[in-house]
Amino acid sequence: MTTLQSQPNHAADAHGTDGAHDGAHGSAEHAKYPFLQHHFDTPYHQFDSAKLGMWLFLATEVLFFGGLFVAYAVLRNRFPEVFSYSSHYLDTIMGGINTCVLILSSLTMALAVRFAQTNRRTGLIICLILTFMGAVGFMVIKYFEYSHKIHDNLVWGTTFYVPPHDAIGEAETKELSVAPTTSITLNPVNPAVFAVPTLAPIPAVDASAIKQASRAPVGLATPTQMAHAEGLPTGEHDPSFAHPATHLVDKKMPANSHLFFAIYYAMTGLHGVHVLAGMVVIGWLLKRAIRGDFSSDYFTPVDVGGLYWHIVDLIWIFLFPLFYLIH
């Protein structure tokens, strides 16, 4: 650090760095722009800070989803056959339509920003409504996709093992001695302590009646193993019972296919939560737009909310090929 120059050149300093605020603007700006917060000098200063803040937030979103993308990559790398087989259970057309819906809603969002910038309130309101409807449409299509999968018992984790009642005979269902699909039950690990609602099956027998060996070290025993330790028939000598993880309706399905659906639900589910959050944001923008808060001077919330909505779109742009377009 060199010693100081005699008199710091304020203007040069402020402009030499990335927009550190320029003290030259004063209270005149604040009187002119009521939305300007006291610690910002100009509307541009405030807008610029908000944008940087939002981009940092978007970076956290990328890393947040990034964890799931990494999990996806690791699992896919380990079980390539699972991914290429199971992805055929996803409906490419539905996924494609959803992609288009999101892209269109992104477009209307970008247009909304433009309308706000040019003081066109009606256009802004219409675009926000269209964006909102895009979000709703996406969720509706997603709902149909999900419910279809759940109906086919293409769900996550241990629940995956359970055949739907109509697919196999009554006797076989009983033989597998697991609870019916998608019942909200206690966590089988420890039903006594904290009631965690779970979609996992519990053995038909009382959990405490299972021999220690079948549960400990806990987590290493699959339901089949539990049944095995119980002396219940597990079907392991049945040639069609390829692996405990096989989906019983489709006997060709490779082992561990449930992992594909686990990561599918994790990623699309988290994305869905973001769409819901986006709907709240757009709704709030809509309310303010109708109130007439935005103008060419002040449209930061529209711009920043738009950035959020675009990142939701961006993530879907990658989810779509990764799940639906695997050959």
């Binding site: 477009l107 910038q117 003081n119 103008s295 060419s296």
Partner: peptide, 17 residues
């Protein structure tokens, strides 16, 4: 203020579409 925002960039509609 009517024609141009004082901040941000105005992207032409045709480009967005």
């Amino acid at each position: 203020p009517g024609a141009h925002p004082i901040v941000g960039h105005l992207v032409p509609t045709w480009l967005l579409v």
